[in-house]
Design a binder for these strands. Structure first.
Lengths: 195, 195, 195, 195
DNA sequence: AATGAATGAGTGTTCATTCAT
DNA sequence: AATGAATGAACACTCATTCAT
């Protein structure tokens, strides 16, 4: 399996750096090859084409994150705690790797529609995680049961995503981790007064 | 002023159609010119370059929407009603023009970073509108006053944006307008049970 | 006759300034029109096309110079004095008008071959003047009669031209007029020792 | 070093032919590539841009000529013989390659000012050769010592250049080599009678 | 497995010229 | 005579991908 060979990861890590530093449209295959320390042609022994590098990059980084979070939240019993953990780990992942944050929030979105559709496939796993948290919460009486679940998970994902994007666009000039409680609180309670 | 000449709008409308139908990267200037019924060179009498068409497109369509919504919400007294109106009119704008929806939610995001920064300038007006609604709501006792307002407005914008994008990616196969009450409800109350 | 209308000269003078200041390839018709204080289209009432402006420019400036010099040298009796006068007046013309010097020595040579051939027609008058001086000199015993007259006139013209071009390329940083005696002396006597 | 690879020379030779046959402004990169038997993109592996082809062309052809002539004239002892050799070899170079003659005398002069300045750098080597010949001649008593050397070398270069250009403009319809003695004679002795 | 020289398709923009007013 | 908005042809250069070694 190519995914497990060292050069596979080597090229993906090179891609993250090159894209973060040069922007999506200035991240030529030859630059990535140079950064990875391989010849241009070698890239094509591990990836079908340039797009495949980007998809693989997203799968490796976000896909693994989703798999991991899926496991991690089993530790927590309550849905509110599971949700807190998702937000926290999501923010942590990107807070710890500014290059990756720039790539996922800004650069990769400049890709064409097909690539974005494939990226969305990866994100479906994320939405499944959110779904299961919502289910747990409703079953356990932590969440009400009269809301549109699909909308709720779009709210959760949209809010997290927008928060991170704004942070990246502001050049990480404030602490993303500090926002975890506020985001969690707003998602659960909204900003209205409880009756 | 060029912005008021008929050909200015004519070219922008042509651009929306061509970009929606061909995708951002296949929307050649010559295609746009042909659709607009003008010569290639005429484009450059009204726009500095191709990027300028896209910025102007966004300014015309979203910028005007924001200006209008700013006025319209003065009709409503309560913050919850103002918010409802924003969601409703935002969804309506894009629900009524599927081409425009595809362009704003998918295609225009493929532009380079500089263009996206300019687009963000336009969106700052939107965030200001949301801010003022939140202020009104807090002042009037409709909203609680112990939440991070910047996060709240990112939640509102992120949720609306994500909801529309998902709708566009699903090829408009359900009724976007039907989601207005659900989105409004979730934003105000969250999905937690009120204590 | 268009040549005598005020706008004809107005446009030519504008062309000299625009070409000198912007270079041949940045001297757009619209710039020349603006400098001349007329509309773009008006140019085409006086000139067949852009090339025609440049030919006319050269004809007006150098053609008139040649006609004048042809008359002026009749004042002098001796061929050496006639030659001196030619060099002197040629240098003076360009020394007095740095814009014109830049245009004739550098910018106009960037034109295409056809234009250069037409410019050469104008210069044929110059060569005729030089021919007649050589004839006079030979007849009067001032010049020897065993040299190739065509080569001699190419030497005269080539030397004058090269001297002016070098002066323009050195940004007129020395006094061109001071070189008249030296050029005259070298042309008549060469640099060999006379036997 | 790219300059020594066969394709480098191959492309330059193709450029000479294409420019001579089509003129400077009709010498598209794709035409040159086709003539050279390489792909358009290959050109850019050897040259920075189109202008770089032209500079390199001049450097290869004239630069090498100058280096060679510098060596060759050491064979001759007398300055008059050295000068004769320069004229002869210069005429021979261009007499033997009509394409090259057309390119250096007519086409390359249509280039923009910056390119011409770089061409002038190459020609500085030529002027140095002429200087050293003049020095030798003065030191050896062959040439007088009361003339402006800068003017003299401008006379030599200007005369040679004008003679070749006239020959090219007359479509090589007479024998350039036959003019060598006449040019040499005029430069040394001028056309005046020796006192 | 790895290389890297070679390929060649694809497009935004300028500006001389026209012509309806 | 004069205008100036509109025209549309023309081209250098990049870079993802291949394939002989």
């Amino acid at each position: 399996m190519k995914r497990n060979k060292p050069k596979f990861k080597q090229i993906i890590d090179a891609a993250v750096i090159i894209i973060a530093e040069n922007g999506y449209h200035n991240a030529q295959v030859s630059k990535i090859a140079k950064q990875a320390g391989v010849a241009d042609g070698t890239i094509y022994l591990y990836f079908k084409n340039k797009e495949d590098i980007l998809i693989s990059l997203f799968q490796e980084k976000m896909g693994q994150f989703i798999e991991k979070i899926e496991e991690d939240i089993t530790e927590k019993e309550k849905a509110v705690d599971k949700l807190y953990m998702v937000i926290e780990k999501h923010f942590k992942l990107l807070s710890d790797d500014h290059h990756l944050a720039a790539v996922t929030q800004l650069e990769l979105r400049q890709s064409n529609k097909e690539l974005r559709l494939k990226i969305n496939d990866v994100l479906k796993g994320y939405l499944r995680v959110l779904d299961s948290i919502l289910e747990t919460g409703i079953a356990g009486g932590e969440f009400r049961d009269n809301f549109d679940r699909r909308l709720a998970r779009q709210m959760i994902f949209g809010t997290i995503d927008e928060t991170v994007t704004t942070w990246v666009m502001n050049e990480h000039k404030y602490d993303l981790m500090a926002l975890v409680p506020g985001v969690h609180d707003l998602l659960i309670k909204g900003f209205g007064v409880s009756s």
